[in-house]
């Protein structure tokens, strides 16, 4: 009986970590748990960050001032994801979009649904669709996805930062 020669072995590495989100993001997520999107503003250039990481990399300063933004915005750009990603429960194809909330100077990635994928456009106006309030936690998953508002598209030049 010949034994099959192995050219690799699996070395199981299991380390557990206690993740933290950061103080600035923690403040943001605690507001998200109340259904509010609270951005932070740079004291120097007035750039508005959501979700905030606690700094404005343009200026290298902390963003302390908070302001609540609406849950409406526009699509800065997007991709339609066709391949399943390991560990990701979302079934493709789905839209991963850079959502620019009204009043924000950076975008974040979220889903867009309630529209034919072929109809999604850069500049399209969207609004958050929230989960049932009883399911809210300290996560952006409180927003199930964004959906089109039906308003006129914005010109993509609005995404340019104005000092």
């Amino acid at each position: 009986m010949s034994e099959e020669k192995k050219d690799f072995f699996v070395s199981d590495i299991s380390l557990s970590y206690q993740y933290t989100a950061g103080n600035a993001t923690t403040r943001f997520l605690n507001k998200v748990a109340e259904g509010k999107l609270v951005a932070q503003k740079c004291p120097k250039c007035s750039a508005v960050y959501v979700p905030p990481r606690g700094s404005c990399p343009r200026c290298g300063v902390a963003t302390e001032e908070e302001l609540e933004l609406p849950d409406t915005g526009a699509v800065e750009s997007f991709t339609i994801v066709h391949i399943p990603i390991p560990g990701n429960p979302i079934v493709p194809p789905y839209v991963s979009a850079m959502i620019r909330l009204d009043g924000a100077d950076i975008s974040f990635l979220h889903l867009i649904q309630e529209i034919d994928l072929a109809d999604i456009r850069i500049g399209m106006r969207v609004q958050a669709v929230w989960k049932d309030k009883s399911d809210w936690g300290t996560t952006l998953e409180n927003i199930k996805w964004f959906k089109p508002t039906g308003e006129d598209d914005v010109d993509p030049s609005v995404f340019k930062f104005k000092e």
Binding site: Y19, I83, I85, G87, E141
Partner: peptide, 14 residues
Amino acid sequence: KYPYSPHINAGAGG
């Protein structure tokens, strides 16, 4: 998978 963000990361291509 961070517990506080939606898992829509789809790799570098995404």
